[in-house]
Nucleic acid binder design. Structure first.
Length: 917
RNA sequence: GCUCGGAUGGUGGAAUGGUAGACACGCAAGACUUAAAAUCUUGUGACCAUUACGGUUGUGCGGGUUCAAGUCCCGCUCCGAGUACCA
């Protein structure tokens, strides 16, 4: 009986589908376990061999947990809104919904072949109105909420209105865009529109004029995590800063909770570190600088309040609202020139060019501590978005201030004894203070403490914690996204009635912005609500992906996002597998989104993902041929140095073990039809390199081809065998024969001369030892996500059982169940052939029995270092297992035991671990 | 610049402080075959020795702790990832 994987895999795929084998329901008799993959964006290119890596790992874990008696939720869906489909629509006129649907179908076909245990009845798509209804619903909730720092939670905005009517906004410790104060009387005197404008200052989803990353090429704004080094992450187009009226989410209100929550979850340290850096908590003080001769107070944030005696100038960000008030008339022209120059610079140019630039306003501020007059400058090295958009400059102890001071010849006052500031600033927080009045003689840390006390006591400022985390810009000037359930009356936004959700995305004729520069939705006919115009922007990609894991728990519910019953059973995700690229985007936004829902008691857990694993990227392994310049002759790798050659990428699919298939090469490209070759040992050897897997490098390997040639079980095993899950590693089809051989050997344990031959005889000690070693190892490995060593263990066990000529039913049954998580198809087939009525995933993972691994009591002689020798009495449990042994006799042990005879020795066979005297 | 990872044969990679290189690929030799493929067997870090037994050396570099270090500590080098005028 041959191992015919094509037939087997097709059969069970259909069976599982027809019998809804992987459908899962709430079962209160079983403990739940929720395993989630980051759902894919269905791109037009389809899956390559790197994409399923994480899915295979999560599937192995899901199947294992199920075999261990858990009720496992393991769903899959599609992050279906996104830029590529829309860009394609702009170029071709093809509606993004159609492209998306096609891509989804293709993904599904590819995924099904690999044998995942997803419960497809829970599938979600973010572009589906029944799904985005709940995205819009959460947005409206955020619109209707403010954040209270005292309660540490989101509260309904109606409460805030009540408080305003009672006491104004005095003494309220709440999240806000800018500090404003008013009394109850002032509030009551305001018009409805004014009141609405004030509320915008507090709403969690709010509309405000903010500096945004504007990407002209994409025609939309982007969030901070969608921009890298001044270029858009998608497409790599330049991004510029622009002030625009945009929707934002007040993520910053949750900064501290997002930071604290990291201690409660089981993520890798590096990922937590990335998030900590992104949140960027820094403790310091806000200092008040009075402007000379003007009724203006500039607040600045600093972590180095100790250096306040060394402030020799101040700097405002060019976008600062104070700029216009501080510029004296005689300097107006020069300032305008500078501001215009700054405006023209893109983010990228600004990063690339770090030369000091700036302009003096003509105004002076007064140092709150010693009253010194300080010139106020403007420069784009100060960011409008961080702190207050203004800084106190201490050139002696801050390298950026130092560069600026040197360039404009401003004074530099050293504040730390022995610090040489003639060539560069002294930024370290160490040393003894000088030139600092009452701080003289203190260490830096003492000085920071003392000056903070002084500032607070004398009302010169206040203590403050600042966060780098910005509010998330939530508007996109695009078509293919969730419409905002917002309409405008008298220029102010109002919420669409919840009962009218979902507000469906309208049809439009072209997917470009309108002639007047409005977003594509400006083209929609009758895009109004109760006669009022609707919002024209759509939501960004992270809107739909922020709470998708909740929707899987109750995907068909039309009454609420997720029912209490479902959420209280499934709770949060126990294991989440996906790439690190979402560290500062999706993984921050969904934690924020979840905490918001938690504040309202909509979800039971305050963190969405308990354990998170980042699978590594699978890189491509490219092959090269070497063409002799100005010829059509190709020279083999080992001889290429003898000629003047150009390396050319060659399709990895026509290369095997770096040996080129010459005929296939000639057919691959008409240009090479007449190619000639200089061979070594009759072969053409290709060079190779590890690169990103991409079409242009001709190194893309399609999982469909692997499944076709080797079977899905082999693909699954091989992807795991390639190396540690979390590590990036290159795909190299060459090694796949090893696992393919293993599966054939395994299959052959069941057959002899084409007949199934499984005996019911009692297994021997060796057979039991072999299988229980495997059971122990696999259980341990899966719990630790060490799947590559698992595959090795399977190979060892099959080799042992083959050598023992083992065909015992009990042994083989255990092997099948243990292998079932990794290779579900072949396991199911053999399981049924053994006469089982139910599917293998309803079996129980075998218990490992320690007794089988023990050997008989024996006397061993342990030699140590050529000097001491002990005769010991112990039983060997397994190699490297720690054992306590009694010492029967000893010799030459003076050297390190002073001649004493030890009572016991803890050993690993042949090695001493510990000696008990 | 800062933060976090990593460095082990020809290759991918194994090693709770305890026989370094599991397992696999590749390679070599052999068996089967008219031949090739497939399959099976054996060998395979390097160096030396070889009739055999064996010996030396070896986990990026330099130190240290320990009876014992790929593993722990200190100082470097190189590579990768993230982040960056964040005051």
């Amino acid at each position: 009986m041959e191992y015919n994987f094509n037939e087997i895999e097709k059969k069970w795929q259909e069976y599982w589908k027809k019998n809804r084998t992987y459908q899962v329901k709430i079962d209160k008799d079983k403990p739940k376990y929720y395993v989630l993959d980051m759902f894919p964006y269905p791109s037009g290119a389809g899956l390559h061999v790197g994409h399923p890596l994480g899915y295979i790992a999560s599937d192995i874990y899901s199947r294992y947990k199920r075999l261990k008696g858990f009720n496992v939720l393991h769903p899959m869906g599609y992050d279906a809104y996104g830029l590529p489909a829309e860009q394609y629509a702009i170029q071709t006129g093809q509606h993004p919904a159609i492209t998306t649907e096609q891509n989804i179908n293709r993904y599904r076909r590819q995924l099904d072949k690999i044998g995942f245990s997803f419960d497809w009845e829970r599938e979600i798509r973010t572009c589906d109105p029944s799904y985005y209804k709940w995205t819009q619903w959460v947005f409206l909730h955020m619109f209707d909420s403010y954040y209270c720092y005292d309660e540490q939670q989101a509260r309904p905005i109606s409460e805030l209105v009540e408080m305003f009517e009672l006491q104004g906004n005095k003494d309220l410790n709440i999240a806000q865009t800018e500090e404003i104060t008013f009394t109850a009387e002032e509030w009551k005197a305001k018009t409805e529109k004014e009141k609405q404008e004030i509320l915008m200052n507090y709403r969690i989803a709010y509309l405000a004029d903010t500096m945004v990353n504007w990407c002209p090429a994409l025609g939309t704004v982007l969030a901070n995590d969608e921009v890298s080094e001044g270029l858009s992450v998608r497409g790599g187009y330049p991004v510029e800063q622009r002030k625009m009226r945009q929707w934002s989410l007040r993520v910053s209100a949750y900064a501290q909770r997002l930071l604290d929550g990291l201690d409660k979850i089981d993520w890798t340290e590096s990922l937590k570190e990335t998030q900590k850096n992104w949140i960027g908590r820094s403790e310091g003080a806000e200092l008040y600088f009075q402007v000379k001769n003007l009724d203006i107070r500039l607040n600045v944030f600093t972590t180095r309040a100790d250096t306040v005696f060394g402030v020799t100038f101040m700097v405002l960000a060019p976008e600062s609202e104070y700029v216009s008030q501080l510029v004296i008339p005689t300097r107006q022209a020069e300032v305008n020139t500078y501001l215009n120059a700054v405006k023209r610079r893109t983010e990228r140019e600004r990063i690339a060019d770090r030369k000091a630039s700036g302009v003096f306003t003509g105004s002076y501020a007064l140092n709150p501590i010693n009253g010194a007059e300080i010139p106020i400058w403007i420069s784009d090295y100060v960011l409008a978005g961080y702190g207050t958009g203004a800084i106190m400059a201490v050139p002696a102890h801050d390298s950026r201030d130092y560069t600026f001071a040197k360039h404009f010849n401003l004074p530099i006052i050293p504040l730390i004894e022995g610090a040489d500031v003639s060539e560069e600033s002294f930024d370290a927080k160490e040393g003894m203070m000088i030139n600092s009045g009452f701080l003289n003689g203190l260490s830096v840390n003492e000085a920071i403490r003392k000056v903070k006390e002084y500032i607070v006591e004398n009302n010169l400022g206040k203590l403050k914690v600042n966060y780098r985390l910005r509010d998330a810009i939530f508007s996109r000037q695009r078509y293919w996204g969730e419409p905002f359930p917002i309409y405008y009356k008298d220029g102010m936004p109002f919420a669409v009635d919840v009962n009218d959700l979902p507000l469906q995305l309208p049809e439009i004729d072209k997917f470009l912005p309108t002639e007047t520069g409005e977003p594509p939705l400006g083209r929609a006919k009758n895009w109004t609500y109760k006669g009022y115009p609707l919002e024209l922007a759509t939501m960004p990609g992270f809107a739909g992906s922020s709470a998708y894991y909740l929707r899987y728990e109750d995907p068909a519910n039309t009454q609420c996002l997720v029912s209490k019953e479902s959420n209280e059973y499934w709770r949060n995700v126990d294991l989440y597998i996906g790439g690190t690229e979402h560290a500062t985007g999706h993984l921050i936004y969904s934690r924020f989104w979840n905490k918001f829902l938690y504040d309202y008691g909509i979800v039971a857990e305050d963190e969405p993902f308990k354990k998170l694993i980042n699978q590594g990227m699978i890189q491509g392994r490219s092959n090269f041929v070497y063409r002799i310049k100005n010829s059509n002759t190709f020279v083999s790798y080992g001889l290429k140095n003898q000629y003047d050659v150009t390396p050319i990428h060659v399709d990895v699919n026509i290369v095997s073990n770096d040996i080129l298939d010459l005929d296939a090469f000639k057919k691959w490209n008409p240009e090479y039809k007449t190619a000639e070759f200089i061979l070594e040992d009759g072969k053409y050897i290709c060079g190779w390199a590890i690169e990103k897997m991409s079409k242009s490098m001709f190194n893309v390997v399609n999982p469909d081809d692997i499944v076709e040639k080797y079977g899905a079980d082999t693909l699954r095993l091989y992807e795991m065998f390639l190396g540690p899950l979390e590590q990036s590693k290159p795909w190299d089809t060459n090694g796949i024969d090893g696992v393919s051989r293993f599966l054939r050997k395994f299959w052959n344990l069941f057959f002899h001369a084409g007949e199934l031959i499984v005996s019911d005889d009692q297994p021997t000690v060796e057979e039991l030892k072999s299988i229980h070693k495997l059971i122990k190892k696999i259980g341990h490995d899966i719990e630790n996500f060490s799947f590559n060593t698992s595959v090795a263990a399977f190979m060892i066990c099959v080799n042992e059982l083959t050598a023992l000529n083992c065909h015992k039913r009990s042994i083989l049954s255990d092997f099948i169940v243990v292998l079932a998580s990794f290779a579900p198809f072949v396991s199911e087939e053999l399981w049924r052939r053994l006469g089982n009525e139910t599917t293998v995933c309803d079996a129980r993972f075998p218990d490992f029995i320690e007794e089988y691994l023990k050997e008989n009591m024996a006397k061993y002689t342990i030699s140590f270092d050529g000097r001491a020798r002990f005769v010991l009495d112990f039983s060997v449990e397994a190699k490297k297992e720690e054992i306590e042994a009694t010492v029967l006799s000893h010799e030459n042990s003076q050297k390190w035991l002073n001649g004493k005879r030890p009572k016991k020795i803890i050993i690993v066979p042949n090695k001493i671990v510990n000696i008990v005297l």
